[in-house]
């Protein structure tokens, strides 16, 4: 089925060729900050996937039915960021009340995600890629959600790989000047280089 193939393609593209962290440079701050240990990296990625899908689910219809219908595309930035900020806050409150265990593990990362380029970037990009120009609402909505999910997964994969790399680097003999962030960035460049190899694998 064409639609299922498209969805799988989108998800794979989000992980391999259009990886948000390693190709698009979105979400670098948490990528560098939280990737020291695997469990914190996984927690952060789970939170990012959750927020990305949720915010796309809310902002895509608003873009279609409110902003574009009234010709107010220029309000996109303000409206999106307001919605995302409010949404994340709401999620935190709900989690704290109803699933305290999840809040204890994920809750720390939620405020970090509010001002994260990845979430806002995803919300804006899907309105461009799967917007009203090319797709009807139902189709476009589905593709937008899968794109958000795929990008989140890509974030998770990148974080997992990088956490492993950083763990290995802990015991290496690093020159004084490069200790800390510089060598981390060089390692990130090598991981990004490896992902370049996926270019052309997925045709969208």
């Amino acid at each position: 089925m064409n639609m299922i193939r498209m969805i799988v393609t989108i998800i794979l593209a989000g992980i391999l060729t259009n990886n948000y962290v390693l190709s698009k440079f979105l979400g670098i701050c948490p990528f560098l900050g939280v990737s020291k240990k695997l469990d914190t990296a996984m927690g952060m990625s789970a939170a990012v996937i959750f927020v990305m899908v949720l915010s796309t689910a809310v902002t895509y219809p608003i873009q279609r039915f409110v902003l574009e219908a009234l010709g107010l595309e220029y309000l996109q930035t303000i409206v999106f960021i307001l919605i995302i900020a409010a949404l994340v806050q709401l999620v935190e409150i709900v989690l704290k009340k109803y699933i305290p265990a999840l809040h204890a593990s994920l809750g720390v990362y939620l405020p970090l995600i509010t001002t994260n380029c990845a979430v806002l970037g995803c919300a804006i990009l899907v309105t461009e890629d799967f917007g009203s120009a090319a797709y009807g609402f139902g189709e476009g909505y589905l593709y937008a959600l899968s794109c958000a999910f795929g990008s989140g997964l890509g974030f998770l994969v990148a974080m997992a790989i990088f956490a492993g790399v950083r763990k290995r680097m802990e015991f290496c003999d690093i020159p004084e000047t490069l200790k800390g962030l510089p060598i981390t960035l060089v390692a990130a460049s090598l991981v990004a280089m490896s992902f370049l190899g996926f270019a052309g694998v997925v045709h969208m």
Binding site: V66, V79, L82, I83, V94, K96, P100
Partner: peptide, 23 residues
């Protein structure tokens, strides 16, 4: 009106949520 509306909605929603779902 739209932006103000969204802002007010968000504000009201969050305040009610923080009261109803207060821990």
């Amino acid at each position: 009106l739209i932006v103000a509306g969204i802002g007010i909605l968000a504000g009201l929603g969050l305040s009610t949520a923080s009261v109803i779902m207060a821990v």
